[in-house]
């Protein structure tokens, strides 16, 4: 596809530099437009459509049971007014931000990057154990979230959990109520374990694109390992870092199965995140309209994060 210049991405130009009118643009690009049409239609059907439906239903009192299920009606901004007066809602937002910062931005990102650098380092030196470490991290990722939730549940459980009854009892320490006393750190640890592999894989791929002679030159200049990492590795990874952060942030915002399996949002609402809150409202209290309003707010928060990361990535690029 003919690309526009950097200042004006929508201004198409011909190879000779002549500005193209929209009709010309369509005509010249018709094979490409035809090519993207199925994808665009599918995206509209499966992404934009449901999002619009969520916005619409958030303005109704649609429900799965009761009179509202038989006669749903338009209630305007009532659901939003109710949501912003709900004292639990602000706790839920705070929990979500803590969960995303703790498990995605700090946990998965930092740990994934560290693992990628270590494994890359080991691979460059031909250490066989690197493959083993790679496979171990990957194993956590290929598990379905539900299984990961049950695995951690089996470890954290106060009554039957292996953390208490195998490890702590071996060193003579009494059982600890992990999920009751440290609910947010516990779910964050489980999610870091679960999601680190994704970040690691992306960074491992990105690390392979850095030419080795840069490091060679730096080494000749006398730069130590830390300097080489800080001055060469990190700047090369910045564009991919923004995209990785964007995807893991969004995925973590939407995660609820892991938390549902581990704590179901408890104790009280200490680990209730916005996605879980939307799910419970829509499918346990069966209030689809109100649940949609929560989902729309979640969509808005995700958009804010997306804009922030994309701007950051462009600025760095």
């Amino acid at each position: 596809m003919r690309s526009g210049d950097a200042q004006s991405p929508l201004r198409f130009v011909s190879p000779a530099g002549r500005a193209l009118y929209p009709r010309d643009v369509v005509a010249r690009n018709s094979p490409y437009l035809l090519g993207v049409t199925p994808a665009a239609l599918l995206l509209t059907l499966f992404f934009i459509g449901p999002a619009l439906w969520a916005v619409y239903s958030s303005l109704t009192n649609l429900a799965l049971v009761g009179i509202d299920a038989a006669n749903p009606r338009f209630v305007g901004q009532d659901n939003y007014a109710r949501l912003f007066q709900d004292p639990d809602f602000w706790t839920v937002i705070r929990n979500s931000v803590t969960f995303v910062l703790g498990s995605a931005v700090i946990g998965q990102f930092v740990l994934g990057l560290s693992l990628a650098v270590l494994i890359d380092h080991a691979e460059r030196r031909g250490w066989r154990l690197a493959t083993l470490a790679y496979a171990a991290v990957l194993l956590a990722w290929v598990n379905p979230t539900l299984i990961a939730g049950y695995l951690w549940s089996a470890m954290f459980d106060f009554f039957f959990g292996s953390l208490n009854h195998v490890f702590l009892s071996a060193i003579g320490v009494g059982p600890v109520d992990w999920l009751g006393s440290f609910p947010m750190p516990s779910v964050i640890i489980a999610n870091v374990w679960r999601g680190t592999a994704f970040t690691m894989i992306i960074f491992l791929g990105a690390l392979k694109t850095i030419p080795p002679d840069i490091y060679e030159a730096a080494r000749i200049d006398g730069a130590n390992a830390w300097r080489r990492f800080w001055d060469h590795t990190l700047p090369s990874l910045r564009p991919i870092a923004a995209l990785t952060l964007l995807s893991i942030t969004m995925a973590t915002f939407g995660t609820f199965i892991l938390i549902q399996t581990l704590t179901n949002g408890g104790p009280n609402i200490a680990t209730e995140t916005i996605a879980l809150y939307a799910y419970q409202t829509a499918f346990q209290s069966y209030a689809i309209g109100y649940g949609s309003a929560i989902a729309v707010v979640m969509l808005g928060l995700n958009l804010i994060f997306a804009v922030f990361y994309l701007r950051w990535s462009r600025a760095r690029a």
Partner: peptide, 9 residues
């Protein structure tokens, strides 16, 4: 009563 009731699935 154990507080774990609040968090156990």
């Amino acid at each position: 009563s154990p507080k774990e009731i609040l968090t156990t699935t």
